[in-house]
Amino acid sequence: MSLFAVEDLALHFGGIRAVDGISFDVRDGEVFAIIGPNGAGKTTIFNLISRLYQPTSGRLIFRGQDITRRPPHVVASLGIARTFQNIELFANATLLQNLLIGRHSHVSASILSQILYTPAVRRAEIAHRGRAEEVIAFLGLERHRDRLIADLPYGIRKVVEIGRALCIDPRLLLLDEPSSGLNVEETQEIAAWIDEIRGTLGVTVIMVEHDMSLVSAVSDRVMALNYGRILALGTAAEVQRDPEVVRAYLGG
């Protein structure tokens, strides 16, 4: 069953076709990886899906709903969360506060009742805090809970960003190069989290990734791109064997 569908998506910058008529489906509960050499249009597709860029043409369908014209902040409340290649956290806030901001789209009380801190607001706050604590426990971040993001090492921040995305309670999680800047051990750790997120939480994942070891380890299906077009789509092994893909990576 398809959770998310991209139909004939295109983005042209003047004469350059960064994304040139791409269609694919992402099934509920799968890990879908997008690979390709530099400049293939991976990140552009990612920014189109997460609604940072406006496509020239094509449609994005999430759970049967057309989200092609929805702004990014609405997409979050529909159940799509994302991380960033270069980590975009609230650096002057603690880890816990960052996760709590992830609960933003689930808060619905009026301003007045929030200022007065009514019992209903209090119960809701406790529930949000509880959800954040669950994510902290899930990712094993307990000992960093009250530290400022600015004081945490890069590898931990990468995990925190995934945690904040999970606090949104997403159906679809978009990971932009989850292994970038990480060493081999940290990358293996990320692979384990992605497995857990899909397996335990049942969240569908779309990720852009360079590291083929990570892609092979976690993906159900892989889509290889070059020059804004699909070269191959299949399992990691199939795609890696594809002659077009080999040519795109190695030249010739």
């Binding site: 979050a76 960033f84 975009e88 949104i168």
Partner: peptide, 14 residues
């Protein structure tokens, strides 16, 4: 949140 990181704030639904 917006004052600290606009991009991230957007994706938190703000």
């Amino acid at each position: 949140a917006s004052s600290q990181n606009q991009l991230a704030a957007y994706y938190m639904g703000i």
